[in-house]
C-alpha cells in the first residue's frame, strides 16, 4: 500500500534524530545528523519534491557535516564530550501535550495531493498552464523560482552572500 516505504523511512528518521540528541560524543552526533539528512532527502524524493531532496542531500548530508567537523576540530578536545543535565519537569509534561495537540490539528490538513486544497486551486494552475508558454522552461519549479519570483531568489542570494562575508569577517584571523 501507500505506506509501505514511508513507515520504515520515518522510523529511521526518528532513530537517527534521537541518536544525534542522545549520543555521548559530539563526533558521533555530527555523523548521525548527516545520516538524518540523508534519510530526510529520501523522504523528500519519495514525496515528489526532488529539488528539495537534492538540496537536503548535498547541503545537509555533505556540506553541513564538513562544516560541523571543521568546527569541531577547531575547538579544544575536552569540549567535545557532552555533559547533559536532566530535562526539566515542565518540558517532560508540556512537550508531549504539544505533540498531541499538533497531531489533533493535523487531521484538518488537506490530503496529500488533493486537487481541491487551497494550495493547489488558487494560483498553481495558472503557473502550470502559462509557464512553458511564457518562459520556454519545462521545469515549472525553476521558472517560478527564477522568473516569476526572481526578486525573492535574489534576496536569498544576498542572504547567502552576507553569510559568507560575515563568516570571513568573524572567523579569519592571522596565525598567532
Amino acid at each position: 500500500m501507500i505506506f509501505s516505504f514511508e513507515i520504515p523511512l520515518l522510523i529511521l528518521l526518528l532513530l537517527t534524530a534521537a541518536g544525534a540528541i542522545l549520543v555521548k560524543d559530539l563526533m558521533s552526533a555530527i555523523l548521525l545528523l548527516g545520516c538524518y539528512s540523508f534519510f530526510l532527502s529520501l523522504v523528500w524524493a519519495w514525496l515528489g519534491a526532488v529539488d528539495v531532496a537534492f538540496v537536503e542531500a548535498v547541503v545537509g548530508a555533505g556540506l553541513a557535516t564538513v562544516l560541523f567537523l571543521l568546527t569541531l576540530f577547531g575547538t579544544a578536545p575536552k569540549d567535545s564530550r557532552l555533559r547533559r543535565p536532566p530535562p526539566p519537569m515542565a518540558a517532560l509534561i508540556g512537550l508531549p501535550l504539544l505533540g498531541i495537540l499538533l497531531l489533533y490539528a493535523a487531521k484538518d490538513l488537506p490530503q496529500f495531493g488533493d486537487p481541491n486544497s487551497p494550495a493547489n486551486s488558487h494560483i498553481s494552475p495558472t503557473y502550470l498552464e502559462q509557464s512553458f508558454h511564457d518562459t520556454h522552461t519545462p521545469n515549472v519549479v525553476t521558472s517560478v523560482l527564477m522568473d516569476y519570483r526572481s526578486l525573492d531568489t535574489m534576496v536569498e542570494t544576498v542572504v547567502i552572500f552576507t553569510a559568507g562575508i560575515a563568516c570571513v569577517l568573524l572567523l579569519r584571523r592571522k596565525a598567532s
Binding site: N139, V141, M146
Partner: peptide, 8 residues
Amino acid sequence: GQYGPGGG
C-alpha cells in the same frame, strides 16, 4: 535545471 530537477 530548466528541464529537470536541479538549478542554480
